[in-house]
């Protein structure tokens, strides 16, 4: 059933979904806001690179500057008034939000009546969506751990000294692409899918497609080894292990190629220690494994790549 705009409106206007709907606008807005400033700064950088004499005398910011101006201003009042204003604006927004929309309250908790779909809070729906593609021990435990550790490792593997404290795209293309792919596509978009697309039975319902609680999906999910006609469990286990190992090698090599694609990235690569390179390579390979697994599942209907008696990948 298509064209069900009413249901789409109900999903989008559910009070608890307001934040992710807001993020659908806020993230693009702030990315545009960043990009606008990055373009301006990159213009200045190009100008200064072309004119070494100017680079020596220029104040090196895109903001106006004249000889004799103070480089610093008093916190009181110039910063405090901005903070005060921000607090007032946030309070007003919060009050309006709290007056117009009520916090949801469902029926009393009932273990015998399963909610369908049973959804986590909106900010964890990316992880819940990951459950489709990976077993819980990966999606629920390993992946969150890798995300947290990976984020914390960023400053220690990013050996690019440029772009410290100003917006630029030109000087940090690799870092920015990596982060934005993770932030926008592997986190925000996954949350949006979990919020807007997923319906009863965690089925895929396009926007305006009516949620059908009786829909049966005959998904023929196969394990990779059956595609190759392997049915012996021992051989399948070894085969899966080899495939996963092969993925790490091939993906790792691809990451290496991207990291050494031009003279600037090669320069940065040279500054990194072996430990830094291996850590970065491993984290990126693990990060790419998510879209790879999504593609395997959605396009080729493959459930597991590696089946063993103890765990499945």
């Amino acid at each position: 059933m298509w064209g069900d705009w009413h249901q789409l409106w109900e999903i989008m206007s559910t009070p608890d979904n307001v934040p992710i709907v807001a993020m659908l606008f806020l993230v693009p807005f702030y990315l545009w806001y960043w990009h606008r400033q990055a373009v301006a700064t990159d213009g200045l950088i190009t100008q200064l690179e072309a004119d070494p004499a100017l680079a020596k005398t220029h104040h090196r910011k895109v903001f106006p500057w004249k000889q004799g101006w103070d480089r610093e201003v008093h916190t009181w009042p110039y910063l405090m008034r901005v903070e005060f204003l921000a607090a007032i604006i946030i309070t007003v927004i919060l009050m309006i939000w709290a007056i117009t929309l009520n916090a949801p309250l469902e029926e009393p908790a009932n273990p015998n009546l399963t909610m369908n779909p049973a959804k986590a809070p909106w900010y964890f729906l990316g992880l819940q969506e990951m459950l489709v593609y990976f077993d819980p021990w990966i999606a629920g435990v390993i992946m969150p751990t890798i995300i947290i550790v990976g984020l914390m490792v960023i400053p220690y593997i990013d050996e690019n000294p440029l772009g410290n404290g100003y917006y630029t795209y030109k000087q940090r293309k690799f870092a920015i692409w990596t982060y934005l792919i993770g932030y926008v596509f592997l986190w925000m978009v996954m949350i949006a899918i979990g919020t807007i697309i997923r319906g009863p039975g965690w089925g895929w319902f396009w926007p305006t497609q009516t949620w059908d609680h009786n829909r049966l999906v005959f998904e023929v999910n196969r394990d990779l080894h059956t595609l190759f006609g392997i049915h012996n469990r021992l051989i399948a286990g070894i085969f899966g292990g080899v495939v996963v190992l092969l993925y790490f090698v091939v993906a790792g090599y691809c990451v290496h190629l991207i990291c050494t694609a031009n003279s600037f990235t090669r320069k940065i690569y040279k500054r990194m220690s072996l430990f830094q390179i291996v850590t970065m390579n491993l984290l990126l390979v693990l990060m790419i494994s998510l879209p790879v697994k999504i593609a395997l599942r959605l396009l080729l209907r493959i459930k597991y790549v590696w089946v063993t008696p103890w765990f499945n990948v």
């Binding site: 608890d16 307001v18 934040p19 807001a22 993020m23 806020l26 993230v27 702030y30 960043w34 990055a38 946030i90 927004i93 919060l94 009050m95 939000w97 709290a98 007056i99 929309l101 009520n102 916090a103 909106w122 900010y123 960023i154 400053p155 990013d158 690019n160 000294p161 440029l162 772009g163 410290n164 404290g165 100003y166 917006y167 630029t168 940090r172 920015i176 982060y179 932030y183």
Partner: peptide
Amino acid sequence: NMHRWAAHMMIMTVWLHTLRVFLSGSYKK
């Protein structure tokens, strides 16, 4: 209502703060 929406808003602002700090390279030395 205020408690719940402020909690949601805090997650939004925390994520946008993370984005800003990354894009301005503020995590560097």
